[in-house]
Amino acid sequence: MKRSEEGEIMPTQQVVQTSRAHRWAYACGLSVKRGNRMLKTFESRVVERAETAGLPAGKLLVRGSFLVIKLATATGLLLVSIWFTVSMMILIVLCCAIANGTAIKPKDARRYKAYGDPYGEYKYGRAPGQPDLKDL
Results as ranks from 00 to 15, higher is better:
residue 103 A to V: 03
residue 112 Y to P: 04
residue 82 I to M: 05
residue 85 T to A: 15
residue 103 A to I: 08
residue 95 C to Y: 04
residue 26 Y to F: 11
residue 109 A to I: 01
residue 65 S to A: 10
residue 14 Q to V: 08
residue 35 G to I: 02
residue 18 T to C: 03
residue 81 S to F: 05
residue 56 P to E: 07
residue 115 Y to D: 04
residue 17 Q to C: 08
residue 48 E to L: 12
residue 17 Q to M: 14
residue 91 L to C: 13
residue 22 H to C: 02
residue 32 V to C: 01
residue 113 K to I: 05
residue 112 Y to L: 15
residue 59 K to P: 03
residue 32 V to E: 10
residue 75 T to E: 12
residue 63 R to C: 03
residue 98 I to K: 08
residue 94 L to A: 13
residue 79 L to Q: 10
residue 25 A to E: 07
residue 32 V to G: 02
residue 59 K to A: 02
residue 50 A to C: 06
residue 59 K to Y: 01
residue 27 A to F: 02
residue 83 W to C: 10
residue 62 V to S: 02
residue 72 A to M: 11
residue 43 E to W: 00
residue 97 A to M: 10
residue 76 G to F: 07
residue 88 M to H: 13
residue 115 Y to M: 15
residue 42 F to P: 04
residue 13 Q to V: 05
residue 16 V to D: 05
residue 15 V to D: 00
residue 20 R to F: 07
residue 94 L to I: 10
residue 51 E to N: 09
residue 115 Y to H: 12
residue 77 L to S: 07
residue 37 R to W: 08
residue 25 A to F: 05
residue 112 Y to W: 11
residue 72 A to W: 06
residue 52 T to Q: 15
residue 109 A to H: 02
residue 112 Y to H: 08
residue 18 T to N: 01
residue 57 A to C: 07
residue 31 S to I: 07
residue 49 R to K: 14
residue 104 I to V: 14
residue 62 V to E: 03
